[in-house]
Design a protein around this nucleic acid. Structure first.
Lengths: 204, 204
DNA sequence: GCCGCTATTATTCAAGCGTATAATAACTTC
DNA sequence: GAAGTTATTATACGCTTGAATAATAGCGGC
């Protein structure tokens, strides 16, 4: 009975592979289908290895959630250019692949559904949400100032809440039932809606 | 060894109790914590009874999802009065308890996360989403007509998509982190946003 | 080219899972 | 109030789960 041959991977690399495999399994089989064994198969290793890299399955799940939030927010937070371009890009990025796809929303929903259950995940969620909304709030502050209509913190906050809600809602709808919308339709609706909300054109 | 005494409930009533217990367990322990045994404990019966009322656990879960969608949509679809009042109530109802609470969003997210996994749940989701959005679309058509600005189907569709996204997004935010908002703040933001989107006051 | 370290595999374990089956207690009917 | 029906309980079965343990194979240092 020969053992499988294997490759000893650098620690960081292997951890990342395991987390990626975890996310694959959650999106394809749901949280309860993401078993240690299934995850190991997906990562091309045996189940025991999981516990060599993570204290428990729960801890690995929590790290996987951090990875999801990072991938959902990093692209949107790194927009560059003048305020108008950054606002426009922020909206478009969040409603276009790869941020907007069915895998992402499945992962997002799976973790959201655990926020009430697991305080660790609740804390990770809150941090991510506030960081995202604050980034949008700053973006809006810059945009309004550049358009010659500077707004106070409270006004920016209300705009940020509304636009964040709008973008999130459209993101979910588009991810879950993309075939109900025409190509680029959600971005177009979002752009027009934000213009109406702010009472300003998003043009240079 | 004496058996437990028990009460023979009417079929409809017992089914409903089991579904309600299922939803309680999902919202408190997550989908994977909603085991047949746990659900039975919550319903005050023994585990075997589940299979007397449902062909399988999966079928019971699907019926539970139908119940969730019904409870999320029935209140919003049954608004009454003139078009302006109905639109106003539609927004307020969706952003106030009992529709807006953390249990609801946990349930919603748990099922959403399974839409990719289970085609049965996917079909239930799509029906519910379209019914909800179409109800909103009709509401908007009536409202715009009453305000003397009748709109075609395509225009109403775009408004419905945007406002549905806005309300859904705010609903999720409020349910997950209600403490980040002041009392009535989300309703107020939503109302002002819809007025801006439509370019009309929501007043009689 | 051997040695030592440890990442990885293989195997095992108790607990919990959904489901199947048989016994029985509660209610209906007459 | 006895008989018949069936909703409900109790128990058992085979499988999967997350985790623990022991054996081993890959690899860097010398």
């Amino acid at each position: 009975m020969n053992r499988r041959s294997f490759h000893r991977a650098p620690e960081g690399e292997r951890r990342q592979e395991l987390i990626e495999a975890t996310l694959d399994c959650i999106s394809e089989f749901g949280l309860k289908g993401a078993t240690v064994r299934q995850i190991a198969v997906r990562a091309g290793v045996t189940a025991g290895l999981v516990r060599h890299y993570f204290e428990s399955k729960d801890q690995m799940i929590a790290e996987a959630y951090r990875a999801v939030i990072a991938s959902l927010t990093e692209k949107a937070k790194n927009v560059e250019g003048d305020p108008t371009t950054r606002l426009k890009d922020f909206i478009a990025i969040n409603l276009t692949e790869p941020v907007a796809d069915s895998r992402s929303v499945s992962l997002w929903a799976a973790f959201i559904s655990q926020v009430r259950v697991d305080p660790v995940l609740a804390e990770i969620h809150r941090e991510g949400y506030l960081a995202f909304r604050n980034a949008l709030q700053d973006l809006l502050g810059d945009f309004l100032a550049a358009k010659g209509r500077p707004a106070g913190a409270e006004e920016c906050r209300r705009y940020a809440i509304a636009i964040n809600g709008l973008v999130d809602g459209l993101w979910v709808e588009g991810c879950l039932a993309g075939d109900l919308f025409r190509e680029g339709e959600l971005v177009s609706i979002a752009m027009a809606s934000v213009e109406a909300l702010l009472g300003l054109p998003i043009e240079n």
